[in-house]
Every structure is written in C-alpha cells, then in structure tokens.
Write a protein that binds this DNA or RNA. Structure first.
Lengths: 347, 347
DNA sequence: CCTCCCGTTGCATCGCCGTGCAACCTGGTT
DNA sequence: AACCAGGTTGCACGGCGATGCAACGGGAGG
C-alpha cells in the first residue's frame, strides 16, 4: 500500500487551512496511486472498473472534488471569464449581467463579476485582476474601454467582447442603435409630429450617444425640428433633468425619444406629475431596452426591446469563436431591437 | 545566464494557447533566476533594487502578471468567493449582488456570480462548481439552501454566509424583518386603521415569509383585522394579483403592508389605475427594501430601507471572521431597516 | 509451456509559483 | 590580509493534477 512519508504531519505544516481533500488523500484511502485517482475523474482515461469504484468510494468518503484550479494551471486554461460592468445593478445592465452569468455557467465557464467605476484606472485595475487570474476572456458591458485595455487584452491573447458599444478593434455585440433610432424618428414624423426631442445624458455610454446622434440626424433629414435634453447619468433623475430642459423652452415638443427606459420613466413622471401634461395625449414617448418597468401600468411605455438572453448568448458565442481561432478579424454581432407598442406611443 | 532547454519550442508542445507570459520567460529576459522574479512581485521579499528594476522592465515588456491561480494553488487559497443567487437581476437582490461584488473586490477577493434556480439539484450543482474551484467562501442571497448544502460546505471547511434568511447552522445576515413588520402594523394601527392587509407571495423566500408572519401576528395582537393576498412570485405581477384578492372581498382594507417594493408597485398600480382608488387618500401602503423606484414620482412609496452596501459589508466581514477562526459558533448580523416616509403613508 | 497482446497501473515529468536554506558577494573592521 | 555581518541570489522542493512511457498482469493462441 506504500505508506511513505506522505501526510503524517510533516507536510501539512505550511498553511493551516487545507480543508479540501486532495487527490493524494483519496489515493491513499483507496490504496492506489494518485494517477489512478486522476484517471478516474478524467473522462476517457483508462481505469479498471473495480479501481474506479474503489476510488469513487474513497472520494465520496472524503468529500473529494477535483481541484479545477490546479487542473486549470496545468491545462493552461482557467475557465474563468470576467464580466466587467459599471453599476451592474441598474436597468438593462442588470439583466445582461444575469443572463451572461447563466450563459457562461451553462458553457462550463465561471463568471467573475467585476463591479467597477468607469475611469481608466479602475478599468485597468479590473483587467489586472482578470489577467492575474488568467481569465479566459473578458466581457465588458457598456463601458468604454480605453485603448490600452483592448491592447493589453490582445497582447495577452485574451478574447475581449464588448457589449453595447461599437468597438472596431474587438469583437462586439450591440443593438442596432442607429436603425432603431432612425425608426423612432420616422415613426414620430409619420404620425405628423414636427417638433421632436431626444432625452439622453452627459456621461453617456456609446450606445446612448449613438441613439442620440442617429435620432438627431434622422429627424433633421426629415425636416423636423429637434431639441436635446441631457441629464447627468443615464438614469431616472437624468430623465427628470432632461424633461425640465425640454419643456421649459418656448414650444414644447410633440414627442420625445428617450435613450433608455429609465430616462423615459423620469421624463414621463416629470411631464405628468410636475407639468401636468398627459401622455400620450399631449406628448408621445418612446424608450429603449424594455426593462420590466416599461410594462407597468404607471408607464405602459412603447420601447425597443433588447433581449438580454439573446445578447448574452451572442457574446458567449463570440468568446468561443475567438478561443477557437484567435487570429480571426474582429466580429460584430448586431441584434435588431423590436419596437414594442404600448400606450406612450402608437402609430 | 543559464540557457538550458527551457523554452525552445520543445516544451510548448502541450497546449497551443500559452499566451500569457510566465515568470520563467521574464527571468530569462532579465537574465536572473525565476526566484528573483517571484521575489520582485512578493511584497516584503528581499531583492536588490537594481534586480527588481531589471525584472520589472522585463515584465513590462512581456506584459507579465503573476499567475494568481498558481499562486493560489500553492498557498492553498484561491481568493475566489461565490455569490449564489436566483434571479440576481431583480429588485433588491440586484443591489445586493452588486454591492457584494464591490466589497469582495475591495477585500482582494474575486466574486463569482452564480445565477441559479432554486431547486436542490441546481443549488448543489452550483456548490460543486465552487468547491471544484476551491472557492474560499460561499454567499447565498435569499435562497433557502438545503441542509446538504450547509453540510457539504462545512465538511469542506468552506465558510457559508446566508443573506436574508435565518439559518441557525450558518453565519447569516438579515434585516430585522420581524421588528420592522411589527412597526409597520403599529404605525397603521396608531393612525386608526383597523382593516389591515398584507401582500406577499406563494413562492416566498424566508424574508418574505417572516415579514408576512410578523405583520399578521402583530396586527392580530393589536386587535385589527388582517387579510392576506399572495401572488405567485415576489414581483410586480404578484402585487397586482395580491391587490385583486385583497380588494375584491367585502370591505376593502385601510392600509396594505407589502412584503417588498416590487409587490408594492404592482399593488399600487392596480389600486390606482384599475380600481380607481387613491393612495394615500383611500388606502395607505408601506413597502420593504427601498429600491430606487420607491422614490420615483409615480410611487413615492413609504418603505423600509435596507442598505445593500451595509449588508454586503457585514456579509464580507462574516466571511473574514470565519476564515480567521473556522470553529467559532455561527454568527448572526442583524441590520435594522429604517422606515423612510414618502407619500404612500405618513403617520 | 511459451509467447504475444492489450488493458491497467505506477513512475516521473510538466506547468505554474512561493520560500527555506545555503552559497555568494560586498564592504567595513580588526 | 583575514574575517564577519548583512543583504542577494540560486537551488531545490512542495503543492496541485494530467499524461507519456514503461512495466506488469493475465488470458488467448500457437
């Protein structure tokens, strides 16, 4: 049974906390070599049924589970994937993060959630953590990664997928912001509205910017007038600020396109509760994202639906593609958002 | 410079993907031994400034970062911490998950987000993943871990912290659900209301249950009548269902206590938009959680504030405490929620 | 009875990194 | 000139698990 100086208090000195059972312990209990244990838990390896059974019994007894970390070190793949997000509890990002976590687990990867600020330093710190842990890939949610970020990921051969931003140098998934926004402008115009407005924000992510820009361009192209209101962030308060700006100037707009649903909620509340106007009778509103609140009776918001599950899946697909063939040119997955009609705007 | 058979294409055979630079490569480039590299990146180790500089320069050039995974294998600590949550994108849980991720990163840990169902099988699968990766601790958000879960974590010496549930065998953090709910009943009663109601849900987590039970008990103790409405989940739709139930019976309630804010939103919307009643003139409402929507003009909900940042910090503190002394008896951190007065109820 | 073959199994090595120990420089002192 | 103290550095080992290779076993066939 080979009873060498294996675990008799001599080697356990280093760190106290060695609670998890190791393959060595299982091997000893089963009276086999560590190789046999390894092979038992490696699909396709050659082990006699009797041995496998002995090993499994011993493993059961000790509560042993293969150390995936060590396995990863050896195979040079960690199965860790980073999700980098700013304020991942808010709005659509929350749905995206949750969907990503689920899709990654399903694929056998381990999602690491990094909740970080947007400054370059913070993002680079997040990246450092991920590279230090040899994450297989990084998925960024609607931040704007600095160029160095893309560069470092590339130099380390780490796939990088950006969601919600058009990033020419990296794989990315994003909604058809430009088309959708153009459609929104067209829908307003077709209904006869000529005084349009868009509510966005100052500290805008690129999705928000794209929506604003595309709406402005389309509206001007159609020959409608457009005013712009911007709050600070891209949330409810920002919608209130935008409403204040848009409705304090001379003639009020006929219809407002909001860069996301939270902004729309703030704007609608201000317009209704503070200004006493009616939606859709006095003003029409279209939002973007279709978060659950858009269906609530208080809002009944007409908005572009982005399916977080679909987007997450596309992102994971891009990761897989990139892992399989690292040298392909950057790919772009576009998810076309569908306009969901509720009460705040109907054609 | 010792130029042995180290990396001349012979050893790189195993796996193609060995993109990350290793300490060996850095050592070679800097013309030092691997130990020197290791020491350069180990705080407090003894390295000559000149050597350190050479190493750092070489590391910079190769984009090297210490492999925390391998370091973890050696030190027998992974710094990985699992966050296990069902529907982590919803309501208060989203805030909790985000706050936890931030607090863990701050502590130097790596948060793994596992988005799982509530069935025993799914939870155990999640645990298997975490144990396989030698996660240092598991934090469960408002699920009810089966007994085997607690047991397995314990047997593997893995700290387990439960948030939002009273779990006698494990460390846990939870809000003072009973006190708060009692206070809600008292506040309604003091205002002269005698027909009370509580809106909860069928598939309730234990926080929701505690709130319902404590409110019922207190109301009965005061001598008020109480009716109960329950939707399916604990979300907006559930609030609508509960409202349907509560307001279809004979006399309608004077005031409703909702087990969380989402339920309150659904209930308020149904009461106002569908039934045409006014809040607070006809019915008062108190919620629980103080999610951002509670402050929105459409709701202006009086509700108990739970601070996700505080709760997350307490949970992380419990993890640390348990890591430091594994054999302490289970601890319980209680966070007392504060009632935030807005328009849906005032004393 | 010997030989061959195939399935098992153990050994040794690999890929990571941290660290105790001993050898190696310095420069200052007797 | 020999010696000592102190700081540096390299070596070798330890802790994981996977795996090529060689040895070992037993049954089948000559």
């Amino acid at each position: 049974m080979k009873d060498g100086p294996t675990n008799d208090g001599k080697k356990t000195k280093r760190k106290e906390r060695m609670r998890f059972a190791s393959a060595d312990q299982v091997a000893q209990l089963a009276g086999v070599s560590r190789s046999a244990v390894s092979r038992t838990f490696t699909p396709g390896a050659s082990v006699a049924p009797a041995t496998r059974e002995r090993v499994q019994k011993a493993a059961e007894e000790l509560g042993y589970h293969v150390n995936d970390l060590a396995r990863g070190v050896l195979a040079n793949q960690s199965r860790l994937v980073g999700i980098v997000a700013t304020r991942p509890e808010v709005g659509f990002r929350a749905h995206l993060a949750a969907a990503l976590a689920k899709a990654l687990i399903k694929r056998g990867s381990i999602p690491i959630l990094i909740n970080t600020g947007q400054t370059e330093d913070e993002l680079l710190a997040a990246q450092k953590i991920l590279i230090g842990h040899r994450a297989e890939a990084t998925i960024i949610l609607s931040g704007s990664p600095p160029a160095s970020f893309v560069d470092i990921a590339h130099r380390n051969g780490q796939p990088l997928v950006v969601i919600g931003r058009t990033e020419p140098d990296a794989d990315h998934v994003s909604a058809g912001n430009a088309e959708a926004s153009r459609n929104a402008a067209a829908a307003f115009f077709d209904k006869g509205y000529r005084r349009l407005a868009v509510a966005a924000s100052q500290s805008a992510t690129s999705s928000i910017l794209e929506r604003e820009d595309a709406f402005l361009a389309a509206a001007e192209e159609f020959g409608a007038s457009v005013s712009v209101g911007r709050g600070i962030d891209s949330d409810y308060d920002s919608g209130i600020d935008a409403a204040r700006q848009l409705f304090s100037r001379g003639e009020r707009p006929d219809a407002v396109y909001c860069a996301n649903d939270l902004i729309a909620f703030g704007l609608m509340d201000h317009v209704r509760k503070t200004l006493g106007l009616r939606i859709p009778e006095d003003v029409d509103v279209i939002g973007f994202d279709d978060v659950p609140g858009a269906a609530w009776l208080s809002y009944r918001l007409t908005t572009f639906r982005q399916d977080p599950v679909v987007m997450a899946q596309r992102a994971v697909d891009l990761v897989e593609r990139r892992l399989a063939s690292p040298d392909l040119p950057p790919a772009y997955e576009r998810v076309i958002p569908e306009l969901i009609f509720r009460d705040s705007f109907t054609p």
